[in-house]
Design a protein around this nucleic acid. Structure first.
Lengths: 350, 350
DNA sequence: GTTTGGCACTCCTGATTCGGGAGTGCTAAC
DNA sequence: GTTAGCACTCCCGAATCAGGAGTGCCAAAC
């Protein structure tokens, strides 16, 4: 049934969608004919619109209003009508210039990415930081704090730092700590996190460890430190939703912001996005987000073939897809490069 | 002029404020007399109200509406009328139970604190993480990432971790790195950050360093790593503002959320709060926040006599001060204890 | 047979009107 | 000093109304 549209219907559907994206008002036949590119009488357009409505591409808020596109229409639009261009030179320049933050560690770059996504798209930007478990361990360090508290610091390949507090039952000397750290690093460095866990358990049963209480303790401590933490999620530009008339109603807006604060739904959705390749687009109800009427456009950033995380933008379903898709696409590529190589133009140190 | 109020005026002012805090509607003389505790006729009340208005404690939105308290009234209320109780047992229990997060590092505890502040007060919670510069350095570590990138990790006394990326001009061996790290730690550990900088510069001019290129390099690297980062600020429960009728208007709400996203103003304000002792209250315009009509109640959390950061709540000026002040006060004490000693009930490790 | 003009009808929207309610200030009586 | 009474003000919500934009359908035109 989809795609079962002749040229004229497509043209009109496209015109309606694009008009609606700009005005946020139901589009009437008359309005449409005034648009450049539609050379038909209102009555003809009405016939086509009526068909489109029957096919589920349009709906009317009430009898004598214009039509608005359904989720299905947007889906069709994105899949077959839309032609995506390249990112504009200006946007490209801004991204290349502002993303490689001076002395920025990975989290700061990701947060700034979220800001940039928002400011360029004029919707909200989202960046899901690399899942801890999907990463390669670069370094493991224990730092003694006051009392019996020990801070475990884990650094992944791409400079993402995680830390976790563990409480000791009995004190440990500085030398023991160093020995532990050395042992663990030689054991675990360079392993993907998924491997790390396995290696720990394996090692616990080895002879060497059975005869060395300190090593045993080290393994148990690091197992503690590896408990998965909640994923970091940067959302910036939430306030852009105040510009969208479809969220003008206070109740909707409240729901929206509560969803943003809670993050659970969003994390789930972004996990789905992470699974797929290339630019992902979820439209309206496809997102399963609670206050409906939102779409999300994402792309994974990666290191070689391994996906690190996901970034993109969230806006109303009535969104400038053509404009935004290239931004997301380009940003994902750029961030991939930034996190991987030393492309950052940092002030060098001798 | 302030305090120049007889008993009856005070009683009435208090009644008006408390009524307005609950209803968010201008309070009329008639309404007030129906309130328990006011045994006067509406006409008498009107006389008093008229006086209070002239003194700047009340204002009327228009001729025939009731009166609403001015900032000045709230200030008077907070200073002299209000009697602050203790935090409720239930709240105390919730805080003691949920704040010592399993394996939570300091930032997670602070974020959770912000959430708790919001959920108990039903306003927005804010927590300003310890300023880097106000802290004592516990440990300094360099981790080599891919290429010539080096990740500097700084841990403060209370387990706050900062990290910064620096780019090397020429490669460095693992051994050299260890030597560097050892040297720096022995030099800087235990020093307050303000001292650290001084010590670095002092050391750079010493004989020992002049004859050892590696040490020189180490000093320069750590100087880079010490560039101040923006302070972390956790705001949770922003959506509570949707429940406040005075922010119902979309324009105000938009301004509010933009201010929250931008954080600059808020940081400034919290810095002011950090300067003072005990529970700080800024009312309405005293906050200098952009969308007016907000108040903030804060208290510093500390380590011994040194203040680490500030936490509190932000709500509309029309806020349940009596209810909220004890929450903020207690939370600040609790967080101070949590960050300082090993009071956290973590699963122990042998 | 597609396209189009015409027409009756629907429904939202914004402006206007209007009465009730709540509150005020003033005055005079207690 | 306190209070009852009274005239007046102003907001607020409901009701009304006209205008505009849009629709569906039909019949004529191409």
């Amino acid at each position: 049934m989809i795609g079962n549209l002749n040229d004229r219907s497509r043209q009109i559907l496209q015109a309606i969608i694009e008009e609606y994206i700009v005005t946020a008002e139901p589009v009437g036949s008359r309005t449409l004919t005034r648009r450049q590119g539609v050379n038909l009488s209102p009555a003809s357009v009405r016939n086509v619109m009526s068909d489109l409505e029957e096919m589920g591409f349009l709906s009317s808020p009430h009898t004598s209003a214009g039509r608005i596109p359904t989720d299905r229409a947007y889906r069709f639009y994105v899949n077959t009508l839309l032609q995506v261009g390249r990112v504009s030179d200006d946007h490209e320049e801004q991204l290349r210039e502002r993303l490689p933050l001076q002395g920025g560690d990975a989290s700061r770059i990701l947060r700034e990415t979220s800001r940039m996504l928002s400011s360029l798209s004029r919707y909200a930007g989202v960046v899901l930081a690399p899942r801890f478990t999907e990463n390669v361990l670069r370094h493991l360090e224990f730092v003694k704090l006051g009392g019996l508290r020990l801070l475990a610091i884990l650094v992944t390949e791409h400079g993402i730092v995680h830390n976790k507090l563990v409480e000791l039952q009995e004190d440990i000397s500085g030398e023991e700590l160093i020995r532990m750290t050395n042992y663990l690093n030689s054991l675990l460095q360079g392993l993907p996190m998924t491997e790390v866990r396995r290696r720990l358990i394996e090692q616990m049963q080895s002879d060497r460890v059975a005869h060395d209480a300190l090593l045993d303790r080290a393994l148990r401590l690091s197992k503690q430190a590896l408990v998965e933490t909640e994923a970091d999620l940067f959302i910036e530009g939430q306030a852009t939703f105040f510009n969208q008339p479809e969220f003008a109603e206070a109740g909707r807006m409240k729901e929206l912001f509560q969803a943003f604060e809670e993050k659970g739904q969003l994390l789930q959705l972004l996990d789905r996005c992470l699974a797929a390749d290339g630019v992902q687009i979820f439209i309206g109800n496809e997102t399963n987000l609670n206050p409906g009427g939102m779409s999300i456009i994402t792309s994974a950033y990666r290191s070689g073939s391994r996906k690190l995380g996901v970034l993109g933008i969230i806006g109303p379903t009535r969104m400038g897809y053509a404009r935004v898709i290239p931004i997301v696409d380009y940003t994902a590529r750029l961030v991939s490069r930034l996190l991987n190589s030393g492309e950052q133009q940092l002030p060098a140190v001798t």
